[in-house]
Design a protein around this nucleic acid. Structure first.
Length: 356
DNA sequence: GACGCGTGGTT
DNA sequence: TAACCAAGCGT
């Protein structure tokens, strides 16, 4: 019997070991796209409920295109990397309005769309349209780096070419979709970052990393994240049972999400007597600081934020000049606003106080 | 092309 | 516990 190719061995393993995932049972580019955007930098278990929510609420790309951005962000709430949702919505509109509701059917067309980069274009092109183009994601980097003992820094520009070329040499011409799924599934469930199952691996005798005991150092990744500290004092200003909120702008975290009146400091949280903010100085002497919350520590990949909430109640007849773009929202309206998980947690914890 | 962008789980 | 990770992309 003839020796099997790498891809055949891999695909055999895949057919026997794959997880049943809903987006693997469709050729609908819309659903495949949806799943791929959701899964960017996100675990399957975390993304799964969102995939179902989006498919249920927006069964077609037309439904998604017709939604308000606010509504899309609200459904995305808690998944993080919110630009994915904004770009996805923008792209839905372009496909619905300019492309007659049809996805481009190849890599080159797909990669031009916002939110669809090299990985996602290859995924959709192969899964939905059987194009022979290799996906190169974090799993593929890891599997290839270990199998072939490649020490090229996966954060480097060079790695894109080295690993991309290799992945495209290995891909099956017959079953590019299954091959791509298999590569990622193997990396995600078997050739894992920590504690890979080398002992019983199908490539046990062919793997460079296994032969040299280099599983722990491959793939090589140089970039270390620098964590910046930030300090947020939120002023939760209540009047007539409503809370003052605004939409966050561009060029910072949580763009498009809603939050309270924020005073950010460079080195520490505020003492109340240190406040030298015009709006608050006008407002504070005539209001009641109902309470200040415990200090929350909100951790993001690149920053750690210490946060305190000051709950301030205004009398109903108190006049004040609202800062630009701020509005009072009822509890019901607030529930429909997309919010950072930090704000959501605070509201949930204190809802008895607010929901009178 | 280096950096910024979330959240939750694991080591 | 701090560090690292998880189906990347835009600027």
């Amino acid at each position: 019997m003839e020796r099997q190719t790498f891809s055949e061995v891999l695909q055999n393993w895949y057919e026997r070991n794959k997880r049943e995932l809903p987006w693997r049972n469709t050729r609908d580019p819309y659903k495949i796209w949806l799943s791929e955007i959701i899964l960017q930098q996100t675990r399957v278990v975390q993304g799964m409920p969102y995939y179902h929510k989006f498919v249920d609420k927006y069964p077609t790309i037309i439904d998604l295109a017709n939604a308000d951005e606010k509504e899309v962000l609200r459904l995305w709430q808690g998944l993080g990397y919110y630009s994915r949702a904004r770009n996805m919505h923008q792209t839905a509109k372009i496909i619905a309005n300019d492309l007659n509701g049809k996805f481009p059917e190849n890599y080159a067309g797909l990669v031009k769309l916002k939110g669809i980069g090299p990985y996602t274009a290859a995924a959709i092109a192969s899964f939905a349209f059987d194009e022979k183009v290799a996906v190169v994601d974090g799993n593929v980097y890891r599997v290839l780096a270990r199998l072939f003992g490649i020490e090229t820094d996966i954060a480097s520009h060079e790695a894109k070419k080295v690993f991309g070329d290799l992945a495209n040499e290995l891909i099956s011409a017959k079953n590019p979709a299954t091959h791509n799924q298999a590569m990622m599934e193997f990396g995600a469930t078997y050739c894992t970052p920590a504690n890979p199952g080398c002992m019983f691996c199908i490539f046990h005798y062919d793997c460079e990393a296994n032969a040299k005991g280099k599983q722990a150092v491959l793939p090589v990744k140089s970039k270390k994240v620098k964590v910046k500290k930030r300090y947020f004092d939120y002023f939760v200003i209540e009047r007539d049972g409503k809370l003052l909120m605004t939409k966050r702008g561009a060029k910072d975290i949580w763009e498009g999400l809603y939050h309270f009146y924020l005073v950010e400091s460079k080195y520490k949280l505020l003492q109340i007597e240190e406040i030298d903010n015009d709006f608050l100085q006008e407002l504070l002497p005539v209001s009641i600081i109902k309470n200040s919350s415990e200090v929350y520590k909100h951790v993001l990949t690149h920053q750690t934020i210490e946060v305190r909430f000051w709950h301030i109640v205004l009398s109903e007849d108190q006049s004040l000049t609202l800062p630009l773009d701020y509005e009072f929202y009822t509890w019901e309206a607030i529930e429909d606003l997309p919010k950072p998980i930090l704000i959501e947690k605070y509201l949930k914890k204190h809802q008895k106080v607010f929901k009178i």
